[in-house]
């Protein structure tokens, strides 16, 4: 049995009679103990899918199950066994750190001490502030408290909706290290993120855009399935480099990646020698052209263009 199964899930919202399709025939399957990433920008449908799976809203069509329980028929059973950390901080701002945790424990008929081992790692970092009101915590501490509360009943499946959005690189890295340790405890995790670089930290990812899943696979396979040869090109003048590569008819796509342009040629036979000659003719200096491994972001953009 899979931890999460979704078959042909669709969901639309209506704004002044205008239909907005949030999800269109989504299929996903998350294995027991898997760390599965839902990767896509704002508005892709990540939150809608998570809310359908943890029984907070109903799909228009399609079926889904969590831990083998149906999201419509068995919603009460599912709510007992999942943990959910919403994108927006949703704890009680007027309760202290400890009171929030106690509250969530009591709602699930358990106590902090019963599952302390599971949250110890995370909770210890905020325990010195256990008497502080949740509303007065910094962003990083709120995030740790929210995760502790989502775990206090030892859920078998954990849903995390953009836990790292707006968080700095250090806290993001620490957060992913915490997720890896939770995974070792046998918890299945579905996590959404707009940060493409976080895809590499998941066992498998779904790349989602405009309510459709463009691809599901391991990060390594997604990178291997990139179509064509990708080149990284740089010169002494980024602005002109970008403009001229884009206007060159041999170029299929050209995207800025920091000081480099990632370039895909229309013909795979186009060589770095030709590219160098093209740029040298246009007075570029310090030209560097290297064949590179695509990143998840390259793959995401290629899929967006062919979708």
């Amino acid at each position: 049995m899979q931890a999460i199964e979704a078959n042909q899930i669709s969901k639309s919202y209506f704004n002044k009679k205008q239909e907005i399709v949030a999800l269109e025939k989504i299929d996903i399957s998350v294995g027991k103990g898997e760390l599965f990433g839902l990767i896509g920008p704002d508005g892709a449908g990540k939150t809608s899918l998570i809310r359908i799976l943890n029984t907070l809203i109903l799909a228009d069509s399609g079926t889904a199950s969590v831990d083998g329980f149906d999201v419509v028929k068995d919603f009460e059973e599912i709510r007992k066994r999942v943990g959910y950390m919403p994108g927006r901080f949703s704890l009680y701002q007027d309760l202290t750190v400890e009171e929030n945790l106690e509250f969530f424990a009591s709602v699930f008929n358990t106590s902090i001490s019963e599952n302390y081992e599971l949250i110890k790692d995370i909770y210890q970092q905020i325990e010195p502030f256990k008497d502080r009101r949740a509303g007065k915590l910094s962003g990083g501490m709120k995030q740790k408290l929210a995760l502790s509360c989502a775990l206090i009943h030892r859920p078998s499946v954990l849903f995390l909706d953009e836990p790292t959005t707006g968080v700095d690189a250090v806290s993001r890295k620490e957060f992913w290290e915490m997720l890896k340790r939770l995974q070792l405890q046998g918890i299945s995790i579905l996590v959404s993120t707009p940060y493409m670089d976080e895809a590499a930290l998941c066992d498998r990812v779904a790349l989602i855009q405009h309510g459709s899943i463009m691809k599901v696979n391991t990060p390594m396979h997604i990178v291997n399935e990139f179509e064509g040869v990708l080149w990284s090109v740089r010169s002494n003048h980024m602005y002109h480099l970008m403009q001229e590569l884009k206007s060159w008819d041999a170029v299929r796509s050209c995207f800025a990646f920091g000081e480099n342009c990632h370039v895909l040629f229309k013909e795979s036979t186009t060589t770095d020698v030709e590219c160098r000659a093209f740029l040298a003719q246009r007075n570029h200096q310090d030209i560097q052209i290297n064949r590179i491994q695509p990143e998840i972001e390259d793959c995401f953009m290629q899929l967006m263009k062919t979708a």
Partner: peptide, 22 residues
């Protein structure tokens, strides 16, 4: 923090506007 949450193509288009302005 001008680019939070946008898709990668838009993020690049945004940076192209910045590079052009510079």
């Amino acid at each position: 923090e001008p680019t939070g949450g946008v898709d990668p193509i838009t993020r690049r288009e945004f940076w192209e506007l910045i590079i052009e302005a510079a």
